[in-house]
Amino acid sequence: MIEIQDLTFIYKDEKKPALQDIRLTIPEGGFLGVIGPAGAGKTTLARAVSGMIPHHYTGDYYGSVTVNGMDTVETSLEDISRLVGMVFQDVDSQIISPVVEDELLYGLENFGIPREEIPQRIDEALQKVGIADLRERAVGSLSGGQRQKVAIASIIALRPRILVLDEPTGELDPRSSRQVFSLLKELNEEQRITVIIIEQKIMLLCEFARQLAVLSEGKIVRQGDTRDVLAHAEELEALGVNCPRVTTLSRAVSVKTGEEQPVCLNLDEAEAMVRRLIS
């Protein structure tokens, strides 16, 4: 479980807080989507959960973040990292090895995973992400989307209990993005891994995330079950967060028919709503 209490963080040499009075609880096995306009503090939030703040990025830090009972300020970055896996937004900086297989090996070696377990972990992670064929390839010869998958595989191989992903589908086409989300859903449901994902693709968040947190200018402006948050579509749009078309549809239908319709989050729900109305 992750508990963030009144967290305010100001990066060194900056005046404006990147995060302000953040209060957020993510239950074990939760699937939280984080959305918000550019510069809202989403990446900073990811860094605070993964311990990079305050261990790598320093600055003025108020409040507390506890991960499974450990206060991230008092726990070493290494101990947090055993629990929390982080996929960076900029994959090219995250990948430090020149060959795919070595990138997966890196964390496994450092955290002292038993030798006999390592080959199986690598095979499994590559297979899950669907890049078993890239194992021997030089990272420089891969496309942006392939690199993104390598970065994800290298973290999954570590089997973290909590996965923090910062826009992991930026370089991927819609179909591959959906595959990544399906994989996260599988890990979340089968192994109860807590997932925190920062994402601009609202359509995917609506389908997969159980909770949503909306950030704007360093503050959480809305949080809760995805459907409840989406019920405030107009407020979100004013902040620069768009809603999926199906949500706009349920709103338009409510207005036009004069009957309040439940918020639709995906195609199936929208289809069911329309069929119910016209039958």
């Binding site: 549809l249 338009a252 036009k256 028919t257 016209i278």
Partner: peptide
Amino acid sequence: DSPESVADAVLALRKGG
């Protein structure tokens, strides 16, 4: 092809119905 036009189609079908 837009939420508006789908909503309109719903309305039209309801009236027609």
